[in-house]
């Protein structure tokens, strides 16, 4: 049986990949995708913990996480589309007007 810590470490790695993706990519779509990646990393931890502890709570939590991830993606994409339709660009460096 693989000890549960390995799953946590894997989840941590996934999470950092997501964060790096968030920071590096200039493109809003990729930003949203990296957020999805982070949420999946969290799912991994929940399932691993639930498997180790033998209770089902973790898995219930995963369902909620997935639905919430979907909502965020939906809202995020909606905003990106309205931004594109109005201003023709979805690059993040366009979003610099609010600063200081």
């Amino acid at each position: 049986m693989v000890p549960v810590e390995h799953y946590f470490v894997l989840a941590l790695i996934l999470f950092t990949i997501g964060v790096v993706g968030l920071v590096v990519r200039r493109h809003l779509i990729f930003v949203l995708m990296s957020i999805e990646l982070m949420l999946n990393a969290v799912n991994l931890v929940f399932i691993a913990a639930s498997r180790a502890l033998g209770t089902l709570d973790g898995q219930i939590m995963v369902f909620f996480v997935i639905t919430v991830a979907a909502c965020e993606a939906a809202v995020g994409l909606a905003m990106v589309i309205s931004l594109y339709r109005r201003y023709g660009t979805i690059a993040t460096d366009f979003l610099r007007t609010l600063r200081g």
Binding site: V19, L22, V23, V24, R26, V31, T92, D93, L95, R96, T97, L98, R99, G100
Partner: peptide
């Protein structure tokens, strides 16, 4: 400080991390 705080989301994320 306000000059440093440029508007981009990424800069904010880096600051957070």
């Amino acid at each position: 400080a306000s000059f440093k705080m440029s508007g981009s989301v990424h800069r904010h994320a880096i600051f957070m991390i």
